[in-house]
Design a protein around this nucleic acid. Structure first.
Lengths: 195, 195
DNA sequence: GTCTATATTACGATAGAC
DNA sequence: GTCTATCGTAATATAGAC
């Protein structure tokens, strides 16, 4: 942090450019040429900072996964009814999604063509299962309705939460982070219908 | 339909193979070589049936969009409270998603790199707005909770419904179509929590 | 309808100058 | 740290035989 203005790239700053392009065009739809144009440097200069395209992907999804797993680490220390802890986890998921929006977006679109992508999918599955266990515990404590299967409910809740990356934009024009997390928690636990 | 066994391809039968590969590898991650291996014919033979890769995409997303818009055509003739009509539309969306699973899956993953993709995104937006209008009408009739913004609620409901393509498989092992549509309708309108 | 062979372009990555 | 030039490969698509 000794230089006031940074006009040369580090792996980190290059990553933020690359992830943006990946999310616009898709990872497979993005060439090194696209990245070089977006970053304003030549293709070969990119290789000075990172080993290649896949390293950028690995760094990006790692960052997303670290944010998500940190939720479970916090959660581990908490007490109280599972349903309340689940509500907290859902709210934190929304917060992490928004805080690390481009990185989580990329993570959620990974298909599994390369080794890095398959590793990311595996870790995502781990995370999903940990949250599913919490929902299962809440059901065992009688706080979750009995007419929806737990595995199915988990998937649908993940679907709603994860879909935020498809439309949330951090400009002031749309909903705020708090409005989104409130809406998700309300819909997930109480639904749309007026009482 | 004069031949008993069909061992030569039509655009339709080729499409079903192609869409499956597109969904496994992603559209951009799928080469004509991949398609030729999966179809068991050479690359050039594929060009005998279709003009190219993008035509396969166009046919696939058209089929998905036709299924979705048919819901609105049915809906148009219906009467009753908007909330009930919305519930019916949500249920029908799940049914169409499952009936046309690979085609809708591909539609929902389109990014917008080509003309065909941008056209698909536009038509999707049209559909979303039509459903959003129905939710707005239900809110105006007082049947939707007032503490969640309508535009936000629409997006989250779409997120939950659309996420079905990420895990639903039509083998007998998982949930049935009816179990899924029941679960979605229950969660969307009443939420997870036991009463 | 399907094939082999190939034209042409685009891609990821490297070499080496400055 | 960035560049131009280029290598080798893989991509879409076509030509023309059978």
């Amino acid at each position: 942090m000794t230089t006031a203005k940074r006009d040369t790239y580090t792996p980190e700053t290059l990553l933020s450019v690359a992830v943006q392009v990946f999310n616009e065009r898709g990872y497979d739809g993005t060439s090194m040429e696209h990245l070089s144009k977006a970053a304003g440097i030549s293709k070969s200069s990119i290789y000075h900072h990172v080993a290649g395209k896949e390293e950028l992907l690995r760094r990006a999804v790692s960052r997303a996964l670290d944010g998500l797993f940190a939720i479970l680490d916090e959660e581990h220390a908490r007490v109280g009814r599972a349903a309340d802890r689940l509500e907290h986890v859902v709210r934190r998921m929304v917060e992490v999604l928004i805080a690390e929006l481009p990185y989580v977006t990329l993570l959620l679109r990974v298909r599994g063509n390369t080794h890095t992508e398959r590793w990311a999918l595996e870790r995502r599955r781990d995370f999903d299962h940990r949250v599913a266990d919490l929902l299962k515990a809440a059901a065992a404590e009688g706080d979750i309705r009995g007419d929806v299967e737990v595995r199915l409910a988990t998937r649908l809740v993940f679907g709603m939460v994860n879909s935020i990356v498809e439309w949330y934009r951090p400009d002031g024009r749309g909903a705020s982070e708090r409005e989104v997390s409130d809406a998700v928690v309300r819909l997930v636990f109480s639904g749309l219908r007026a009482h």
